[in-house]
Design a protein around this nucleic acid. Sequence first.
DNA 1: CAAAAAAGAGAGCACCGCTCTTGCTTTGGA
DNA 2: TCCAAAGCAAGAGCGGTGCTCTCTTTTTTG
Lengths: 228, 228
Amino acid sequence: MSTAHSARARARIEVTAAIKEEARRQLAAEGAAKLSLRAVARELGMASSALYRYFPSRDDLLTALIIDAYDSVGEAAEAAHTAAADDGPVQRWTTVCEAVREWALAHPHEYALIYGSPVPGYTAPETTVPAAARVGLVLIGIVRDARLGPGVALPALPAELLPEAERMAADFASDLPPAVAPALVAAWAQLFGLIGFELFGQFHRVVEDRAAFFRHAAGQLALGVGLT
Amino acid sequence: MSTAHSARARARIEVTAAIKEEARRQLAAEGAAKLSLRAVARELGMASSALYRYFPSRDDLLTALIIDAYDSVGEAAEAAHTAAADDGPVQRWTTVCEAVREWALAHPHEYALIYGSPVPGYTAPETTVPAAARVGLVLIGIVRDARLGPGVALPALPAELLPEAERMAADFASDLPPAVAPALVAAWAQLFGLIGFELFGQFHRVVEDRAAFFRHAAGQLALGVGLT
DNA sequence: CAAAAAAGAGAGCACCGCTCTTGCTTTGGA
DNA sequence: TCCAAAGCAAGAGCGGTGCTCTCTTTTTTG
């Protein structure tokens, strides 16, 4: 047996962590495109071939970084959520959105890795799903906590969207009215549209005071999901 | 002189077009990351070094493809706009949004090239700006044509956003009330958030009937910019 | 203690972007 | 008309990449 306490197992954990750490350094410095296994190995003083004992391919290393990035932004959102526990729903929503934006501005290459175009052959492994959901869960939680009654000003759904909305609600918002689910998903996607456009330069010469613009847009998103 | 009519100049234009065509083929087939100058040259039966007479670097080739992609999606939006000239504003807005979405679904790698994470060393040249603006101009035009009066249900702007909104309006919506400008930019970014999330797999196991979902979300965006 | 498993190291393959040098062809002015 | 200049194609080569294979060393385990 012995998965945990042998010296070799401990060393493996440490080396794996060191590889990821150095890879994250290079990712932050130069972007995913320039992340090189050989450079990581060089920096760690090991032969590049030895690195393949820990990550069978460059894509596997990237996948590990992707999961970490999802967890990192998820943690940022959760921390902002708990820190704003005493505020009203709209304020709480806006605070979480701003936390996500600030995480993105602080980690642009990591953001690009997870919310930009898929890097290699673009097959996001199933492993990343739970980590990817964390930000969404925080947003759902805010709406859930607000316990909006059925009378809130959410527009009626068109008939063609009704089954989809009920399926969505059953999946991840079982205690909320079905009309909320599509609005929530849309706001979730739109949030990252705003952040991505800012980060990737589409707001160049279009938006100057980006913090104020984002705050207002995030507040509007909150209204769109029925928060008041 | 002689820019146009020498045999050499004609050949240059043809070869340049052939290179871009083959590059676009590879881009569509494998994505920007796998686009290789050597492979393009190989496919065209020329030495890879000869290709550098036409594009001084791989990034320059990519930039040319980026501009073409912006023009392509811009044309799609404009065509949808003119085709829907008889519809009401909301319907027209939705139609244009759907045209952009369909272009993205048909050209995913091109979409990723222009709206995903910046590919190489991420310095979008100033040349791309006019092409990049085309979709936005179509959306502005719809709102402008709708000639919404000041009484439309756009929420009041917070004080901190007022100067920014006036600057925006002066820049690209001089004949519209200032409150429209930030709403328009936000809707523009959110539109690509919706499309990007669908295209890059974030809707996996979240949204099933994506066309219906998108149609509804696009309609909500129209309301958000004051269309009725 | 010996066999087995894990890990490191090196050489090598095929590919990449890019540069430099060497010839050949077209062009345009004297 | 002829000839220098400019434009173009091709080849060799440099340093880099991901990845594989083989060989040796180290650690774990029965």
